[in-house]
Design a protein around this nucleic acid. Sequence first.
DNA 1: AACCAGGAGACAT
DNA 2: ATGTCTCATGGT
Length: 219
Amino acid sequence: MTDDFLQRESSLSIFSQLNQRYGEQHWWPAETDFEMMIGAVLVQHTAWRNVETSIERLKSEKLLLPQRVASLHHEDLMEIIRPSGFMKAKARTCINLSTWLVEHGIDSADVVPSRDPHLRNDLVSIPGIGPETADVIRLYAFQQKSFIWDVYARRLLPLFNYPQWRTYEEARQHERTFIDIEGFSLKALQEYHALIVAVGKESRIKGENPLFLNKQQQE
DNA sequence: AACCAGGAGACAT
DNA sequence: ATGTCTCATGGT
């Protein structure tokens, strides 16, 4: 007998609890798909408030287009995105990503939704784009359904008797057993990730279990 | 004044 | 395949 038979709350039920507790998150906070993708790179292991400055700089220099970033010198981009940290790696990643977009005929700020099944492999093969950033870009820019197994998700779901997966890919490898991704709308999956990050931030600040777990709490 | 934030790559085992 | 170390800004 495996833990597949263990009683656990459905991922849909968890979603509606989060939705009730935290409300609309309005994600991803970007005006265009390309701005979203650059933000996804800059936010790696970094607080979002440190990314906003970099995005504003790029925006005011009118650089938020694939061709513009692709043709920047590495050193120049490093200075622009300095507030986001890890600037050497992130500047290279942004240029790599932008170059890839240009090479694939994507030269505008917004992107055509994609059903390409190997878009994920394409993105992951870009140096600096790992599994999580690839899925986030797929979810918010290319409108491909995916569940983001970030550190917050891997900490939260075990509180509902889900297995505790150590790495992103390990979790993703088993996700079909636990989450009916096709059962969710694209918008719901986008909201799901935003909500999980909201929980993660709150429980990190309070240093305790997420508030919405106290179900006995009366209005 | 350590410690870490909406990860990923290089490298060893 | 799986685990550990490094990256390197700004805010608690």
